[in-house]
């Protein structure tokens, strides 16, 4: 579904991604872990078209999309939920959701209204707040809104950058449960997380990044089962997973 080949990305003169290659299958949830500055967010932003790679290629279903602008990539089925949420603060919750489906509004006006109602079913905490300004919501609700807006695009590839930052554990569990349900519908998800335990619970496979490179690649089961790998790559032991 997604194949990245020998990708190099720079921030000015600083190389943020170094020769990175990876492959994600349809319906796979791939977690990317690593310390701050490892290049995780840059990778997601490059996939969403916010950075132009200096070298390498990105193939989505066999088609090269490297260097294409974000508005084109949304139409190809890539949706990024950025770390800082980037919701439209002075628009209502409902308008934020509807704008998430901007690229298909012209052809599916009625459909996007029913999609927005479905999102409210997925995140019932947003129900009854449709007319409120998005900027007045709590951090958790804003995160749900950002994810909901991302889902409104009906993505084939959903990119989530630190969705659990600053959220209460209960909200994090809700979001992770939603992601688990979503991948079962065939959506490929790449999840960048600092909250290792939560990410490992839902991920099928895991990459660990360090200074722009992948230093570990395997299944979440492999990491969970091997405390040596955890110590070596994550610098700590991850407690056993709890049921969702």
């Amino acid at each position: 579904m997604l194949r990245i080949q020998a990708l190099d990305v720079y921030h000015g003169y600083v190389q943020a991604i170094r020769g990175l290659s990876l492959h994600a299958k349809e319906g796979e949830l791939l977690a990317i872990l690593g310390a701050n500055g490892a290049g995780k967010s840059t990778l997601l932003e490059t996939l969403a078209g916010l950075h132009r790679p200096a070298k390498g290629d990105i193939l989505l279903n066999g088609k090269s999309i490297a260097g294409k602008p974000p508005e084109y990539l949304v139409r190809q089925g890539i949706s990024l939920v950025p770390e800082r949420r980037e919701i439209f603060h002075s628009l209502s919750v409902w308008d934020n959701l509807l704008l998430g489906a901007f690229h298909r509004y012209r052809h599916a006006k009625q459909e996007i209204h029913s999609d927005a109602r479905e999102i409210l079913e997925i995140f019932p905490a947003l129900k009854g707040r449709e007319r409120e300004m998005a900027g007045t919501l709590s951090g958790g609700l804003q995160q749900m809104l950002a994810i909901g807006r991302g889902l409104m695009a009906r993505p084939k590839l959903l990119l989530l950058d630190e969705p659990s930052v600053g959220l209460a554990p209960m909200v994090v569990r809700e979001i992770m449960a939603t992601l688990a349900r979503l991948k079962n519908t065939g959506v490929t998800i790449i999840l960048v997380e600092q909250n290792t335990r939560s990410a490992l619970r839902v991920a099928d496979s895991v990459l660990i990044m360090e200074r722009g490179r992948i230093t570990f690649s395997g299944s979440s089961g492999e990491i969970m089962a091997d405390s040596t790998v955890q110590q070596a790559y994550l610098g700590r032991r991850v407690r056993p997973a709890m049921a969702l």
Partner: peptide, 11 residues
Amino acid sequence: INRAAARLVGI
């Protein structure tokens, strides 16, 4: 409001 976010939804 947010040009970058608008691009991310396809505007």
